[in-house]
Design a protein around this nucleic acid. Structure first.
Length: 627
RNA sequence: GGUCACGUAGCUCAACUGGAUAGAGCACCUGGCUACGAACCAGGAGGUUUGGGGUUCGACUCCCUACGUGACCA
């Protein structure tokens, strides 16, 4: 078995159900080379000191905890059986051997079953030199998928985007960027749910109460205008239901028989039949919504390479259903409806096509999956969809498998948790939904206020300042939503989301602005950012810490890509900024008299700035030169 | 009723996939701006990791069970 194949199968046990093929074939970055050579040395040490064969791959090396001296730690407990010695005795013997025979190891200490290894300064300097030479946009190859489609956002056209969509959009965008950073070709797709009963409801209310008003006339964004009529529909519809109920009609019947509901259904049928008037109204109203969405997308900084519209794909699903019937993997019930039996897969019987031949959600999803595959021939297709649809996505995959589709296994549901408010769940009926446009405005305002209070941006033009406020506001918001493990349900606290201190986006942005100031001053002084480090004296503890943080970048990107978790990048960017701020307060840069040291610190700052910027870019967050 | 997630400091979240004394931020207390940007840094206090059992040299992590929360399927 090849090395790559061995690693691929070893990765199959990931706690995420990621298809094996997108798993890790780690590139040998400089740190990994360092780790590998230490492992090899340890293996040799075991051979020499104890006469036992323990392959390097079996040794587990981990980062040393902060409270102990050293950078890498070998856990010696697992060796006690094979070597027949106590954990401390083993650690001591191996440590001594390494210090004597491996130049990269400069010292060690043993605490119980832990052998902590200190790495020679010149090794860190060598590592840093390598890292600084790497172009910022150089891919971090993982051997993962090469052609990826990431579908995200996927809004309905009957109301504007809300907080839940924001988590979706930021996640989708970020995951796509992270996968790109591994060298994959990524297509960002948006499947717009532009047809169905919901949009007919808005259309109906508009016909009734709209007096042909346009977004321009109303002075509101198109998506908000349509949302207004959707709410109007709901309001009048509920009145009708209540009316019927007071007349003694049973609740569920009243809901079905209310005149407005019947009219909306009539309208949907007319739409499907291609009724000119209905279709033309539908075009006009959806057009307004798209203008509104485009504006929001542009503001929050997300983009798409490919748009899909359900109105154009929903019929394709019926062909898949027909295919399944022919292959005998689906069956038709007496009433004419089509079903699939997924009991063997641990699921249930699932409806695929209604008795009247109309499609259900899954029908069109079957069609869209096929279409996407035809369009892009992906080896990974990511669906960024909330976890309330876990079952639905399982069914989709299982059905495609039954159909024998080669791309079924390449489908990955990036299932993220819903966003709660301090008051509980967001409910449109109770008016607790947080509107995306309003929220972006609020975080921008908060950033404006805080920035003006601190008064550090004199000299920026009005336009530059506004650009900065939005960058900071969005930085706070995006970071707040992305720092949490995607699969976990999260709480959105409005006050915390605009915070600028602590574990926040602006904290990281601030660190970058500080570094930018250093770079400006270095340029003024005519100092180079690429230092000659051959004669560098002993490193400060915070400098070693910085190099170690910088060196983690590629493995962090790899892990984030494998688990599709921007949260890992978010944590890393914070760690970087935190480590830099510590370095910044503990050692002087321009006050340093030793020229080599000073140049190294300039170079270290510059490199940190680049990596903060690169990491934040993977989150879709921009960083300022000043703030 | 069934299936699947989740439960960690007062609050919001981490924990390198089974390793050391479970870490950050917010809030609270203390100290640091005549150094290159204090949106920062250092320190303090705060935990029976929901309860109970099991596997292991070692469990927040794996298994069983109870409770709680949430989602989905009829």
């Amino acid at each position: 078995m090849s090395r790559l194949a061995a690693q691929a199968s070893a990765c199959g046990s990931s706690r995420f159900a990621v298809p094996a093929r997108i798993c890790c074939y780690p590139s040998l970055s400089s740190v990994q080379q360092l780790e590998n050579s230490i492992k090899a040395a340890l293996s040799a040490a075991i051979q020499q000191a104890f006469g036992a064969q323990v392959p390097a791959e079996q040794l587990t090396l981990q980062p040393t905890r902060k409270d102990f001296a050293g950078s890498f730690t070998l856990v010696t407990f697992p060796l006690t059986k094979t070597l027949g010695k106590g954990p401390e005795q083993i650690g001591q013997a191996l440590g001594e051997w390494l210090v004597a025979n491996e130049a990269r190891v400069s010292g060690f200490n043993v605490v119980k079953g832990f052998l902590n290894l200190e790495i020679a300064d010149r090794e860190w300097v060598r590592l840093f030199t390598e890292l600084s030479q790497r172009p910022d946009n150089a891919p971090v190859p993982t051997g993962g998928p090469q052609h990826v489609v990431v579908e995200y956002s996927s809004p309905n056209t009957n109301k504007p985007l809300h907080l839940g969509h924001l988590r979706n959009n930021f996640l989708g965008y970020s995951v796509a960027e992270i996968l790109k950073a591994t060298g994959a070709t990524v297509t960002k797709a948006n499947l717009v749910n532009d047809r169905g009963i919901h949009i007919c409801k808005s259309m109906l209310a508009y016909q009734e109460f709209g007096h042909n008003e346009t977004p321009e006339e109303a002075g509101i964004k198109g998506d908000h205008l349509i949302g207004k009529y959707y709410v109007l529909f709901e309001k009048h519809y509920r009145e009708q239901v209540r009316q019927l109920e007071t007349e003694g009609v049973a609740s569920d019947i009243a809901k079905r028989q209310a005149p407005m509901m019947l009219e909306a259904q009539d309208m949907l049928r007319a739409w499907e039949a291609g009724d000119e008037e209905v279709v033309s109204l539908w075009r006009q109203m959806n057009g307004w919504v798209y203008e509104g969405f485009d504006e929001t997308y542009a503001t929050i900084g997300v983009d798409f390479d490919k748009m899909y519209y359900e109105s154009e794909t929903y019929l394709l699903g019926k062909e898949r259903v027909e295919e399944g019937l022919q292959k005998g993997v689906f069956f038709r019930k007496d009433d004419g409806s089509v079903w699939v039996d997924l009991k063997e897969e641990g699921l249930d019987e699932k409806l695929l096509l209604r008795a009247d031949g109309t499609s259900v959600y899954i029908t069109q999803d079957l069609g869209t999956a096929e279409l996407k595959y035809q369009d892009f021939g992906y080896d990974l297709s990511v669906y960024v969809i909330a976890d309330e649809q876990n079952y639905h996505m399982q069914v989709l995959k299982a059905v495609l498998k039954k159909l024998g589709k080669p791309y079924a296994d390449a489908i990955y549901h990036l299932s993220y948790g819903m966003v709660d408010l301090p008051s509980g769940k967001m409910k449109s009926r109770e008016g607790t939904v947080v509107d995306a446009d309003e929220l972006v405005q609020e975080v921008t305002d908060a950033a404006r206020q805080a920035t003006n209070e601190l008064g550090k941006i004199e000299g920026l033009s009005e336009q530059e300042a506004e650009h900065l406020y939005r960058m900071l506001g969005l930085g706070a918001l995006k970071y707040y939503l992305l720092k949490v493990d995607p699969k976990k349900r999260m709480l959105f606290n409005p006050e915390e989301s605009v915070q600028l201190q602590g574990h926040t986006g602006p904290f990281i942005q601030y660190s970058h602005a500080r570094i930018a100031a250093i770079r400006r001053k270095a340029a003024e002084l005519g100092l180079s950012e690429t230092a000659d480090l051959a004669s560098l004296p002993a490193l400060h503890e915070t400098e070693v810490g910085m190099v170690q943080e910088l060196a983690r970048y590629s493995s962090v990107v790899t892990e984030a890509a494998n688990t599709m978790s921007p949260a890992i990048i978010a944590q890393y960017a914070y760690d970087l900024a935190k480590a830099y701020n510590r370095f910044y307060t503990e050692v002087p840069v321009f006050g340093e008299v030793d020229e080599t040291k000073r140049n190294f610190r300039v170079a270290l700052s510059a490199q940190t700035g680049r990596m903060i910027k690169a990491s934040m870019r993977l989150l879709g967050i921009d960083v300022p030169e000043r703030m």
